[in-house]
């Protein structure tokens, strides 16, 4: 299978702090890859390097075959930052419209995508609501919709399910499944272990290092545990 994301000995240092420590990732086309680990373990930093927003201190990263940072991959990837990253004084509809225009979508396409996406994130009745008047969860949903506007083939989602109620969260996961059926690759960070078990493969990260990689079943089997949470603890103890 083809790897759409590859990192080789990726290191990111902020002054003396090493946020990412010799990280080697291989993410295959069409999978949902869960990047799990506690806060401050280097998940967001890694995603920002992969999106070209941060420069790695050492090592290399490749996205869709391009050595990052490389703006030529931007039309093909979607990025949902951890914070909602929306304009508070814009309506929901204008938010979708603006980002659609940035990706060079025509007016008709934007309208079509807006309909689909707002239905998916359950914001259909909120087209004319200002972003500043949305609840935290709604903002998060809109943020996800924005990152999907241009039908990207690779999605970087930084904690996409925070603050979203269980029912909608389930539908998100269902949607991610549909996307991968169409060949879209999803890299998702989370610290919900129950969510991680829905990923095709999971990379466990701690202090900037990958401590384990595999399907949830493999990881549980390897550590002889019933939950991913237990196996995570197991791997952590082993890496110490």
């Amino acid at each position: 299978m083809k790897n759409v994301v590859v990192t080789k000995d990726l290191v990111k240092e902020f002054g003396k702090l090493r946020a990412v420590n010799r990280l080697n990732l291989e993410i295959q086309k069409g999978e949902v890859y869960g990047f799990i680990g506690p806060n401050g373990s280097g998940k967001t930093t890694t995603i920002k390097i992969l999106c070209g927003l941060l420069e790695a201190t050492y090592g290399e990263s490749f996205v869709l075959g391009r050595r990052m940072p490389d703006p030529s991959v931007y039309p093909r990837i979607g990025y949902m930052p951890q914070e909602s990253a929306l304009y508070p004084d814009l309506t929901v509809s204008h938010t979708i419209g603006f980002f659609g225009e940035l990706y060079g979508l025509r007016k008709g396409e934007i309208e079509k995508r807006e309909k689909e996406l707002l239905a998916f994130v359950d914001l259909k009745g909120r087209r004319r609501t200002l972003v500043s008047n949305l609840s935290g969860g709604m903002k998060h949903r809109l943020s996800l919709a924005v990152s999907l506007i241009h039908n990207p083939e690779l999605l970087f989602l930084d904690e996409p399910t925070v603050g979203i109620d269980p029912e909608l969260r389930a539908s998100f996961w269902e949607y991610f499944g549909n996307l991968t059926d169409e060949g879209v690759t999803v890299l998702i960070t989370t610290h919900y272990m129950d969510e991680a078990s829905k990923c095709d493969r999971v990379g466990m990260i701690r202090e900037g290092k990958l401590v384990a990689v595999g399907t949830p079943e493999e990881l549980k089997k390897e550590t002889d545990t019933v939950s991913l949470e237990d196996s995570f603890l197991h791997f952590i103890r082993r890496s110490d």
Binding site: P81, E83, L102
Partner: peptide, 13 residues
């Protein structure tokens, strides 16, 4: 600070 600049940076603009 609200992160939209990052979003613009990861777009084709």
């Amino acid at each position: 600070t609200n992160g939209t600049l990052d979003r613009l940076f990861v777009s084709p603009i």
